Computed example of a mutant assay.
Amino acid sequence: MIKKNQIIHNTFFCIFLFCFILLVFFPFYWMVNTSMKTENQLMMTPATLVPLDHISMKFLPSSINYQAVLKNTLFLHSIANSIIVAGVVTLVSLLLGSFSAYALGKLYFRGKKIILYLILTMTMFPRVSVLSGLYSVIRFLHISAIQSMILSYFLFTLPFTVWVMTSYYRQLPSSLLEAAYVDGATPFQSFFDILLPLTIPAAVTTGLLAFIAAWNEYLFALTFSSVSPKSRTIPVAIAMFSGTVSRQYPFGEIMAASVVITLPLLILVIVFQKKLVAGLTSGAIKQ
């Protein structure tokens, strides 16, 4: 009876796992599938699961959408803009976030809990609620679109980085700091030489999440680059794609561009895979 129940349980678990994997990966598969179809193939009804020739119905993938995207100078320029914006935001957020997390996680001073609650409160505000006021300030100060995006992205990457990194610093044993103080180390030396190397997996994890958030951000980028098309980042550039003929919506090119911009994120995850897993699980064991 127990064996029969276990078989039933395993069967339902396998079915659930298959449905979950299908639900998660099918949109990505459909994106790649659509990016490899021509205009005629996209107009076929019903839609096909693989690129097929609309006459012979043979498997016939096409790279025409990728060629069009990679020849689009505005799209290539938007990739450079996104790399600059997301890279600067991530590095500065990690730098300031690590210092702040060290102070909030290991040092003792008045008002520390209040500061933590304020940081948590900042992450709860919807971004659209501060957009109009922030746009007015930036227009008044005559800040460029790229700089505006970098400064505005700190509103959601910096509180997130500080809050997450603080939890990692709290997990580190205080005996390390006490031993460093006994040896004559200053608080900065204790942070830079002892604690910071131990939090590299956590920094990689937090930095990657902050980079993805800045890389995919659309609302602020659309607002601040509205008067400067050359400053558009990738999400805005893709949204502004137009067809080669009147009333054409370039589904194939949009999907091809989506595949192209997904590759850098995929490469980052693969390169930092070990540190990413270590960072996600570093807080699972109580010190």
Rank of each mutant, 00 (worst) to 15 (best):
V92D: 02
L95Y: 02
L95G: 05
L96K: 04
S98A: 13
F99Q: 08
S100C: 13
A101C: 07
A101P: 07
A101S: 11
L104H: 04
G105Y: 04
G105I: 12
L107S: 05
L107V: 13
F109M: 12
G111H: 10
G111Y: 08
K113C: 03
Y117C: 11
L118P: 15
I119C: 15
L120I: 08
L120W: 09
T121Q: 01
T121E: 01
M122F: 14
T123A: 03
P126F: 08
R127Q: 12
S129P: 00
Y135C: 00
Y135D: 04
Y135H: 12
I138H: 03
R139T: 10
R139I: 09
F140P: 01
L141V: 11
Q147D: 06
Q147P: 00
S148Q: 09
S148Y: 02
M149N: 08
M149H: 03
I150Q: 02
L151A: 10
Y153D: 14
F154T: 14
F154N: 09
T157I: 03
L158E: 06
L158I: 06
P159K: 00
V164G: 04
S167R: 13
S167V: 01
Y168G: 10
Y169V: 11
L172R: 07
S174Q: 11
L176W: 11
E178K: 10
A179K: 07
A180F: 04
V182P: 00
D183A: 11
T186W: 00
P187C: 10
F188P: 00
F188V: 12
Q189A: 09
S190Y: 09
F192G: 01
I194Q: 03
I194E: 05
L195V: 14
L196D: 01
P197F: 04
T199H: 05
I200R: 14
P201T: 14
P201W: 12
A202Y: 06
V204D: 06
G207T: 04
G207S: 10
I212W: 11
W215I: 00
W215K: 01
N216K: 08
Y218A: 07
F220K: 10
A221E: 06
T223V: 10
F224T: 10
S225I: 02
S226A: 12
V227R: 13
S228G: 00
P229N: 05
P229G: 06
T233L: 10
I234A: 09
I234L: 15
